[in-house]
Nucleic acid binder design. Structure first.
Length: 431
RNA sequence: GUGGGCGUAGUGUAGCGGUUAACACGUCAGGUUGUGGCCCUGAAGAUCGAGGGUUCGACUCCCUCCGUCCACCCCA
């Protein structure tokens, strides 16, 4: 016998309910406007890709690929993966569509869901949404600075100016190996003092020891070799230029501060040189609002001609949590022009036809539930947050009028010709 | 994957080892003739997360599982 099953959303994913949509839409439209302000164009890539794209692009050894991907075989036996991050797909699209034939750099942005199998907690979900920008085909530090500036512009527009940008350069692949070796040697000397989590990491990913939360490790990290001391001349030059460009942003963004953080390393293999994160100035662990950097090796790895790139991804859920925490954005719901209140079958038919005409003129008209009492319909109108009630009953039909009553402000109820034009004129003045 | 907190109507909460599980908001219906908000009345809505155990008796105590939240890990 079938039991009644109560379904809930799967673990780590949520419904974005109507009340939340107001804020979501504000954030998304701010993202779009900001990106366009810098000349970025929107791109949507598919929700799933061939698994190989991420294994190759993000890196086989990374946590994302090792244990966080939603991968599955489709009915044709193809291994597919729900997109865990946005950069590799955009680069795939760049290659696939020959975007190197466009004026470089190609500036792209997206707002899209990402999927990672991870244990959910505050600000961490199995499906989350990212606003991301990618600038492909330009090696100059100017474009690194531009990417960071987009982040600042976006954050400022949302009233979240009080953030710190942590920034570092991890050098190029050629110098990274010797840096990693020296780092490993440094920690190996004190291996006995390391907590066991970090002893494991020592072999696997020595760079990750730098951002360990273990106090013992942090003490050792203080005098660990710094990636900035291993930069090639070219990378060093790039780094210094970037910093002076960032200094130049300070007049336009008075609250902007960056902190060079030699423990900042990022968990995706494709990064080189510039890496950065935006953090609000509060405590907490899931608070990184942005993450990004330069990924010059990526497009080559994916089979394209070697092409530099730089970008960021920003978690919309975390931005929204931060907006709510700081109460930084005050958004009013836009109200409907009118609710149609109708008593009796004739009136209901007339009201529906009238509503159609009014909508044709661009007005927002909500029908009150048919067959209910006047009082019930008026209460409904009140809750609907509409500016007016348009009331039609037998009396109005006999007289060829509609009663138009203001709901959101003081004013007399008017009797208006039962015609769309006349009613529309009465509704419009308050728009 | 590892630790900790919490699971009572749609939501937020109260409750106590003992006959009908409470309150607020919300929903629905009313408050004389066709007019919202405030107010008033009434109704619906919970097998007290699931299973097992202790007990004469458990929403209340114990165990297991599940879910959820928080932290670690990692990241946005």
């Amino acid at each position: 016998m079938p039991e009644q099953q109560n379904y809930r959303a799967p673990r780590g994913v949520t419904d974005i309910l109507p009340d939340d949509q107001i804020l979501w839409n504000a954030v998304k439209s701010t993202a779009i406007l900001t990106a366009r302000q810098f000349g970025y164009q929107q791109i949507d890539t598919p929700v799933f890709e061939n698994t190989g794209l991420f294994r190759r692009g993000v890196g086989d050894e990374t946590d994302i690929v090792q244990k966080e991907m939603y991968s599955f075989d489709d009915l044709g036996g193809e291994s597919l993966t729900l997109r865990p991050e946005g950069t590799a797909p955009v680069c795939r699209s760049y290659i696939e569509h020959g975007m190197h034939n466009l004026p470089q750099p190609v500036r792209l942005f997206y707002i899209a869901p990402m999927f990672r199998y991870d244990r959910p907690q505050a600000g961490r979900y199995r499906q989350h949404h990212q606003f991301g920008c990618e600038a492909i085909g330009d090696t100059s530090p100017n474009i690194d600075a531009e990417i960071i500036e987009i982040g600042l512009r976006y954050i400022n527009a949302l009233g979240l100016s009080d953030v710190t940008v942590r920034i570092n350069s991890i050098g190029d692949p050629e110098t990274r190996q010797s840096y990693a070796d020296d780092l490993r040697n440094h920690y190996t000397k004190y291996a006995d003092d390391l907590p066991k989590v970090d002893r494991d990491r020592l072999q696997r990913a020595p760079l990750r020891l730098l951002d360990s939360k273990e106090p013992a490790t942090q003490r050792l990290s203080a005098d660990a070799p710094k990636s900035l001391d291993y930069l090639s001349d070219e990378a060093q030059n790039h780094w210094e230029n970037l910093l002076s460009l960032l200094d130049g942003l300070k007049s336009a963004y008075p609250k902007f501060k960056y902190r060079i953080d030699h423990t900042l390393v990022r968990g995706l293999d494709y990064y080189n040189r510039t890496v950065f994160e935006f953090e609000p100035s509060i405590e907490g662990s899931q608070t990184s609002l942005f993450g990004g950097g330069r990924y010059d090796p990526l497009i080559g790895k994916l089979g394209g001609a070697p092409t530099p790139g730089v970008g960021f991804g920003s978690g919309i859920e975390r931005i929204i949590l931060e907006i709510q925490r700081q109460e930084s954005l005050d958004i009013a719901e836009t109200s409907l022009n009118a609710v149609m209140v109708h008593i009796g079958d004739d009136a209901t038919a007339r009201a529906a036809a009238l509503a159609a005409e009014l909508r044709k003129q661009g007005l927002g008209i909500l029908m009150a539930p048919a067959g209910k009492s006047m009082r019930a319909q008026m209460r409904y109108a009140n809750r609907a947050n509409a500016n007016y009630a348009i009331i039609i009953g037998n009396r109005e039909i006999e007289q060829g009028v509609a009663a138009v009553k203001p709901l959101q402000f003081d004013g007399e109820q008017l009797s208006v010709d039962l015609k769309a034009d006349a009613i529309a004129k009465t509704l419009r003045p308050i728009l």
